[in-house]
Design a protein around this nucleic acid. Sequence first.
DNA 1: ATATTTGCAAATAATTTGCACGTAA
DNA 2: TTACGTGCAAATTATTTGCAAATAT
Lengths: 131, 131
Amino acid sequence: MGTRAEYATKPREQISQILREDPRFLTAAEIHRRLDLAHAKVSLSTVYRTLDHLVAKGAVTSRLDAQGEASFMHCEPLRQHHHHAICRTCGRVEDVACAAAEQFAETLRELHGFELDDHAMEFFGRCSRCR
Amino acid sequence: MGTRAEYATKPREQISQILREDPRFLTAAEIHRRLDLAHAKVSLSTVYRTLDHLVAKGAVTSRLDAQGEASFMHCEPLRQHHHHAICRTCGRVEDVACAAAEQFAETLRELHGFELDDHAMEFFGRCSRCR
DNA sequence: ATATTTGCAAATAATTTGCACGTAA
DNA sequence: TTACGTGCAAATTATTTGCAAATAT
């Protein structure tokens, strides 16, 4: 019914692997470039469709970078609510537990009468390796 | 020298006014539509250029909506660092003082060795009027 | 066998740009 | 008068889509 069959294809496996091996947000174009380097002939539209598929599946998270370009990272956002700290130098992403946000929700309710139902937070700086 | 002259033109005044009168993030297309309704004949490219100008001036803030489309709001971000609470029902935006973020920076440093130099936070829910 | 996935080329849609003309100073 | 701004049409760029061929089940 609701769920449909899912085929294990080479492009999907290759794209998943690229994402699993690199904890950074990559654009469709960057992934396509890496496939080229690995001599995997996958079209750009397949990259887009596969990424959509992985996001729908819950295996990958996407965000829009500063230029408004979509980028993707291997990350199960449904597992536990958390945020990301993105290193400006190496691009590496670390998961950050969500705690302050809960507290913030309380503040918002008290000061603004605003009932929170979602939030987005991202942090930028230098990770411990790059400092 | 560095700074260049700035002319007060009708399109700029009209666009600024639209933004000043509505505390919501509006897309270029939406602003263009409102100009039309007001029988102000301004081209869409002028809307884009004017918005860029206002952002560069520091009078307007922009963000990318969920679809990746740029939207703009009258807001001087340089005045004081703060965040936004966006009402899902009416779209009205309230400024939220940044305080928890400072505290969060400390947590990040302790737990991850991550040196924070910027952050972005957005909150979604129902404002006091819409609850 | 057949449902799903892919490649290719063409279509979209937001945004930007070149350039000749208009306008504020 | 001259630097700055605008309109228009064309270019750019990321992303999506139609469809026929390929592939996994």
